[in-house]
Design a protein around this nucleic acid. Structure first.
Length: 441
RNA sequence: GUGGCCGUAGCUCAGUUGGCUAGAGCGCCGGGUUGUGGUCCCGGAGGUCGGGGGUUCGAAACCCCUCGGUCACCCCA
């Protein structure tokens, strides 16, 4: 491949060869933290008895329209397209709908407990913690409306934040009521807002018209007084809804999980019923402080043509979790890439063999390429963060030995080890000072 | 979709009454007598000054458009 000629170079549009607006690459060393979040979640989901559900990255448009005609996701944020067969499809904007669709399609035995890791897409203007493609980890339990399930699902999410070392994450809790109690409330709220918000302009009226609940979490300062005094959903809950909600709160308390009743917590999707919740980070002063959220959706399966089936789930935004971790404790130096770096002063493939032996033995190892000088290789050894360097030198080779150097020692500490023993020697040395403390993101 | 701020080497930035071959630090590559890193010294590579158009004798700097970044609104992970 020869480089393009100068004039050909000029014709290349640099704005095209970059990640599209609102998307980003996840690369080392940042991706190490990303993997750690995923691994932590996967481990806990497994312990809770959840299996992985991998669903398509796109679905028929109708699947996502089930999140609600009044939602921003459906009205303006969907990445929809038509394929060559004329099907109307959309990239996944949220995680619950595809899982419920899969449930309705396959009808697995209940309770169906699954978790997922998936990219999500929303066409909106990016800003801190808000991207057009972002990754969510989530879990869903379908088929049971026992409040104990609500408690378990919330506990799963809560445990993930704790395991990741996030301490400034709070749990906000609310109940959206059930099919019987919500319509009466919405009517009362609309009535109230129309009466008291007469002078608030078209934006206000449009929201009241579209979905009065949307007004409750509005940030507009002029509206706050009216919103403060608006009727609260909790006053309209049916006896059954109240009983369910109280059971959830008792269950959380019994696990020592603190939650805050937040009557004005309104989540973005219309399908929510009963329990809704959101995890927010106080370390984030950005407008996007929600690091996760979810709720119960007892009519969604039915709305997709399945039998009446309750369900509950949540999603956690990986990017926001990482931002929250940075905000809590600052960005740490990246962890070492490998434990051992092999410096080859002999040539002839000696490093190739030793590195292979180390890797087979479970020791992470790297080496330099391109026949670089010993000095250059030593620099790379230093920068790799490796604890030990092994130098393959001519003097040592004369009696079948190699030099092993402790790169962390303040004074250069170097010793000779017989070539055939070096792998075992390094394994033991690394085992001795393996840090017991858990790795935080 | 609307609005504010910003756009000079890989990164962080300097460079204004518009005027010499566009600079620094860090990073990268090499060297400091032929086998060793982290400190220090020397050298080197690397820039369509986001892109296009305009004003001007002359533009990185001024104007317009455009692309991108960032923050906020709307809303959310």
């Amino acid at each position: 491949m020869s480089p393009p000629a100068d004039d050909a170079r000029r014709a290349i549009d640099p704005s095209v060869y970059r990640a599209p607006v609102g998307t980003h690459d996840v690369l080392p060393p940042e991706s190490d933290r990303w993997v750690h979040v995923v691994a932590t979640f996967a481990d806990r989901a497994r312990r809770f008895g959840y299996g992985l559900a991998v669903t398509p990255i796109f679905e028929h448009l109708e699947v996502f329209q089930r999140v609600g005609a009044s939602t921003d996701v459906v009205r303006k944020e969907m990445y929809e397209f038509e394929d060559k067969g004329g099907r109307h499809l959309a990239l996944r904007p949220e995680g619950t709908a595809p899982v419920v669709r899969a449930y309705v399609q396959h009808r697995p035995p209940v309770p169906w407990k699954v978790w997922y890791l998936a990219p999500h897409f929303r066409y909106e203007r990016p800003q801190k913690g808000r991207y057009r493609q972002h990754w969510q980890l989530g879990a869903e339990v379908i088929g049971v409306d026992d409040p104990e399930v609500d408690v378990e699902v919330i506990a799963l999410a809560h445990g993930v934040y704790r395991a990741l070392g996030l301490e400034r994450v709070r749990l906000l809790l609310n109940s959206m009521g059930d099919a019987r109690s919500r319509p009466a409330y919405v009517a009362a709220l609309r009535d109230y807002l129309v009466r008291h918000g007469a002078g608030f302009g078209d934006d206000f009226l449009a929201r009241v018209e579209q979905n009065p609940l949307r007004v409750l979490d509005a940030k507009n300062a002029d509206w706050q007084d009216v919103i403060e005094r608006a009727p609260q959903l909790t006053e309209y809950l049916s006896d059954a809804a109240v009983a369910h909600f109280e059971a959830v709160q008792r269950g959380l308390a019994s696990l020592g999980i603190a939650s805050e009743l937040t009557p004005r917590l309104v989540r973005g999707f219309d399908y929510y019923t009963a329990t809704t919740f959101e995890f927010v980070s106080d370390a984030l002063d950005a407008a996007q402080n929600a690091v996760g959220g979810g709720g119960r959706y007892d009519h969604l399966a039915e709305d997709m043509g399945g039998p009446p089936t309750p369900g509950i789930g949540f999603g956690i935004g990986i990017e926001r979790v990482l931002i929250a971790a940075d905000a809590e404790r600052g960005e740490d130096a990246p962890p070492p890439r490998v434990e051992v770096f092999v410096v080859d002063a002999l040539g002839g493939g000696a490093a190739t063999v030793l590195v292979a032996e180390l890797r087979e033995a479970g020791v992470s190892a790297d080496r330099a390429y391109g026949g670089r000088s010993v000095k250059a290789q030593s620099k790379l050894a230093d920068r790799s963060g490796a604890r030990y360097a092994v130098i393959l030198g001519a003097r040592e080779a004369e009696h079948d030995a190699v030099a092993v150097k402790d790169l962390r020692a303040p004074e250069a500490t170097q010793g000779e080890v017989p070539r055939r023993e070096v792998v075992g020697y390094l394994r033991q040395a690394l085992e001795r000072d393996r840090r017991p403390k858990s790795y935080e993101i």
